[in-house]
Design a protein around this nucleic acid. Structure first.
Length: 505
RNA sequence: GCCCUCAUCGUCUAGCGGUCAGGACGGGACCCUUUCAAGGUCCAGACAGGGGUUCGACUCCCCUUGGGGGCACCA
C-alpha cells in the first residue's frame, strides 16, 4: 500500500494568510542559539502574516527536565522581544500549553490507533532492545525495531498489558513510500521499509515527541511547523501518524542548523552563548535578533534591518538550505552599528547601567548621570560591545590615576630622551595652569603652542599628555577628556609623570 | 552500515537560462586624524569536479566529491 503523497494542500491553502505557528522548547536548560534562531524566524513569520505565535512546553521527558528552564526560556524570548499570544504562562484557547498536562489527549489518540490496528503494544524490555541493537550492529544491518511484538494478537496483548510494562509502537506500513512536503525543499520521499515501528507512548504513559507533535499541532490548529532539520528524517513518521489519525498535515519548514566556524557543532568555544549570556555580556537584543535572522536568511543586499523592517520583509520560504556558520565578528560589528544608531539619551542610560556593573566597587552608585552624559558622545563610535566601555572611561572616575611605567613614556620619538620628555611634561603642566579657558579648543591651541616651544611634534607631545592624564595609550579624544577630568587633576597627573621620569634618570 | 539533505568570495548572502556574478563582515591600501575608533575611496577574493539538456548554463537533470543531519521508552 502506497501512502498517497501530500499534495501540498495544507501548504497552498495557508500561504500568505495569517499563520498559527509555535515555538516548542523542552525544559532541558537554556535554549541553544540555533533553537532561538528558529524561534525568531517563526515569530517573524507570525507577525509578518498577522497570525499567532504560540509557546508550548514539550516536557514529556521527566528524566531530562532541568528546574528553572521554563523561566529562562521565556526570559530569553522576552529579552529578544519575541512576544507570544498563547503560552504556558498566559494560557489561551487551547490550554494547557504544557504537554505534561495534556496526557488524556495523547491517550485518546493512542486508543484510536490501537483500535484501528495502526499501533500495537510492545513488551520488549530495554535489555532485549539493547541486545537487538548490538546484534544489528555486529551484522552491519541498519538499527531499528524489527517488529517482534507487532503480531501479538490484540486480546493477548491486552491481557498482558494488565501486569506487564509496555510501550505502544506505531505500525509503519511495510511497503510503499511516504512523501512529505517541505516548504523549503519541496517533496521529500522515503521508503517505508527504512522506517521502523517507532514508539509513540512510553511505558510511563507519556507520549514521545512524535505523537505529541501530531496531536498538539493538530489540536492547536498550527498551520506551519517550523523546526530544525534534524527532524526532517522523521517527518515521514509524523506524516504517517497524521494520516492514520485522519488529521490534515500542517506545512513544514525544516531549517538547517547553525555550524561552528570550521564546521561541526556550535559551542561556547566559538562565541556561541545562550541568549541570556549575550544579555549579560552587553549585547543589544535588536542586534542579536538582526544577526541571527540574517544568518541563514537574507533579503537582497540588506544587512542592517530593524525589528519592524524584518517583520515587514521576512519571507519564511527564503530561508537558506545550506547550513550557515556562526560569525561572531559579524555579530559584534552589528552590535556596534546598533549602538551608534542609538539616541544619545538612550545610549547614555545603557552606558550608565553597564558601568554600574563593570566599574570598580569603589566608585559610588548610582553613577552620576551628568558625568556619563558628558563623555557619552566621546565614546559612542568607539564601542562595539558594552564591555568595551569601562576600560575606555574608567579614568574619569579615578581621583588618582597611577602613572604608567616610565618606559611607556620613553617610547617612539621620546626613546632614550628622559630629559626632554620630563621637560616637555613640565612645560605642559605650567601651560595648563596658565590656560585662561578650560575648553577643548583652548587646550588644544595651548598645547600646540607648547609643542612648538619645546620643539616636539604636536602628536608626540599629545601622546605624552594622554598617557599622563588617562594612564592609557588608547582613549577618547584627549582635550574633551581633559575638560571633563578638570584642570587640577590634569596638572597633578602631568606633574606626577614628570616626577616619575626624573626619578628614573 | 542504511536513509535524508545541502553545495556562489575565508564568512553571511544576492542571483531564479543571456549579469563586467552584486552587497555585507573580515583582510589589504589610501584619505581624514592628537591615540583608538567612526566615516570615505579603492583593491584582492567565489559559481567543488565531471557528464548531459539547451543557441546559451551559477541557474535545469544525472554522477562523483565534500559538508550536515537522522537511524532511543531524547527532544
Amino acid at each position: 500500500m502506497t501512502t498517497s503523497p501530500n499534495t501540498g494542500s495544507a501548504t497552498t491553502s495557508t500561504r500568505g494568510g495569517p499563520a498559527r505557528v509555535r515555538y516548542a522548547p523542552s525544559p532541558t536548560g537554556d535554549p541553544h542559539i540555533g533553537n532561538i534562531r528558529t524561534a525568531i524566524w517563526t515569530w517573524l513569520y507570525a507577525r509578518h502574516t498577522g497570525g499567532q505565535f504560540i509557546v508550548r512546553l514539550e516536557d514529556t521527558d521527566q528524566t531530562r527536565e532541568v528546574p528553572g528552564s521554563l523561566d529562562r526560556i521565556l526570559g530569553s524570548l522576552l529579552w529578544l522581544g519575541l512576544n507570544w499570544d498563547e503560552g504556558p504562562d498566559i494560557g489561551g484557547p487551547f490550554a494547557p500549553y504544557k504537554q505534561s498536562e495534556r496526557l488524556p489527549l495523547y491517550h485518546a489518540a493512542v486508543d484510536r490507533l490501537l483500535a484501528d490496528g495502526n499501533a500495537y503494544r510492545c513488551f520488549c524490555t530495554p535489555a532485549e532492545l539493547d541486545e537487538m541493537r548490538k546484534r544489528q550492529q555486529e551484522e552491519k544491518r541498519p538499527p531499528g525495531y524489527e517488529g517482534k511484538c507487532r503480531d501479538i494478537p490484540r486480546e493477548i496483548a491486552e491481557a498482558r498489558a494488565l501486569d506487564e510494562h509496555f510501550v505502544v509502537r506505531f505500525a509503519v506500513p511495510r511497503e510503499g513510500s511516504t512523501t512529505v512536503e517541505d516548504l523549503l525543499r519541496g517533496p521529500v520521499t522515503v521508503e517505508n521499509r527504512t522506517l521502523d515501528d517507532f514508539v509513540i507512548l512510553k511505558s510511563d504513559r507519556f507520549p514521545t515527541y512524535h505523537l505529541a507533535h501530531v496531536v498538539d499541532d493538530t489540536a492547536m490548529e498550527i498551520t506551519h511547523v517550523t523546526r530544525g532539520d534534524e527532524w526532517l528524517p522523521s517527518a515521514p513518521r509524523h506524516a504517517l501518524l497524521f494520516d492514520a489519525l485522519g488529521y490534515p498535515r500542517p506545512a513544514y519548514v525544516h531549517n538547517p542548523i547553525i555550524l561552528a566556524p570550521g564546521g561541526g557543532k556550535l559551542s561556547k568555544r566559538h562565541g556561541a552563548k545562550s541568549v541570556l549570556e549575550y544579555a549579560e555580556d552587553g549585547y543589544l537584543p535588536d542586534a542579536l535578533l538582526n544577526f541571527l535572522c540574517i544568518t541563514g536568511w537574507g533579503h537582497g543586499d540588506d544587512t542592517v534591518m530593524s525589528r519592524e523592517r524584518l517583520i515587514e520583509v521576512f519571507e519564511i520560504d527564503a530561508i537558506s538550505l545550506s547550513p550557515a556558520t556562526f560569525d561572531a565578528e559579524r555579530l559584534n560589528w552589528l552590535n556596534g552599528v546598533y549602538l551608534r544608531q542609538m539616541p544619545e539619551a538612550e545610549f547614555a542610560e545603557v552606558v550608565a547601567k553597564r558601568l554600574e556593573i563593570d566599574l570598580s566597587p569603589d566608585v559610588p552608585r548610582p553613577l552620576d548621570r551628568a558625568l556619563v552624559a558628558k563623555f557619552t558622545p566621546l565614546i559612542k563610535e568607539r564601542v562595539e560591545l558594552l564591555t568595551d566601555i569601562a576600560p575606555l572611561v574608567d579614568f574619569f572616575y579615578l581621583s588618582e590615576v597611577a602613572t604608567p611605567p616610565v618606559e611607556q613614556f620613553l617610547a617612539k620619538k621620546w626613546k632614550d630622551q628622559p630629559q626632554a620628555t620630563a621637560d616637555a611634561l613640565a612645560a605642559v603642566a605650567s601651560d595648563l595652569e596658565a590656560v585662561e579657558a578650560w575648553d577643548a579648543a583652548t587646550l588644544e591651541a595651548a598645547l600646540r603652542a607648547t609643542a612648538e616651544r619645546v620643539g616636539a611634534k604636536a602628536g608626540d607631545l599629545f601622546t605624552l599628555v594622554r598617557l599622563a592624564v588617562t594612564g592609557k595609550t588608547v582613549t577618547p579624544p584627549l582635550f574633551e577628556s581633559m575638560v571633563i577630568v578638570g584642570v587640577a587633576p590634569c596638572v597633578a597627573r602631568v606633574r606626577a609623570a614628570e616626577g616619575a621620569i626624573r626619578a628614573s634618570m
